[in-house]
Amino acid sequence: MILENLSQLISDISTQPLFYLFSFVIIASAMCVVSLKNIFHSALFLILTLFAVAGIYILLHAEFLAVVQVLIYVGAVSVLIIFAIMLTSRLASKKIEQSNEQVTLGLFICVLFLLASVGSLTYTAWNTVDLPMIEHNILTIGKLLMTRYVLPFEVVSVVLLAALIGAVVLAREEKA
């Protein structure tokens, strides 16, 4: 119910300032993620980014996805990453170089990628439709998952199981 209301609220108010806010947070924190020397700080900024992305989802009337984003990314994946960082490096005192020597080249490539994609975005004739978003988002997604997308749903569960087993096998300590 809260989500429904939130959605209603967002559709009522102008989304433009919120979008810029979220965009700024996303871009800024994402840059921090890729450039900070302390990998732990990077992870924290990643969480921030993911939060902001969840906000963008809400702006786009994807409330369920926003919740999933927060639950899985912020809740699970981020914790996992922080766990990994803590397991693999003693980071507290280290200020080591976290970038390799292809920074310049990578930057160049990225800028060009950005240019290319933004260019193609602007030059593409999108056949957009000006329709309101479906009501009862969550209800519909649940129905679709159980009807039309039941097979991908099951396959994804198998993927998760495989990932689970794979992770266990990989990370298991070798018995001496």
Binding site: Q102, G106, I109, L112, F113, A116, S120
Partner: peptide, 15 residues
């Protein structure tokens, strides 16, 4: 990097 750079190049060449 090479892969991405190449992909960008291909796109650019097309455009």
């Amino acid at each position: 990097l090479v892969v991405i750079g190449g992909a960008i190049g291909a796109v650019l060449y097309r455009v």
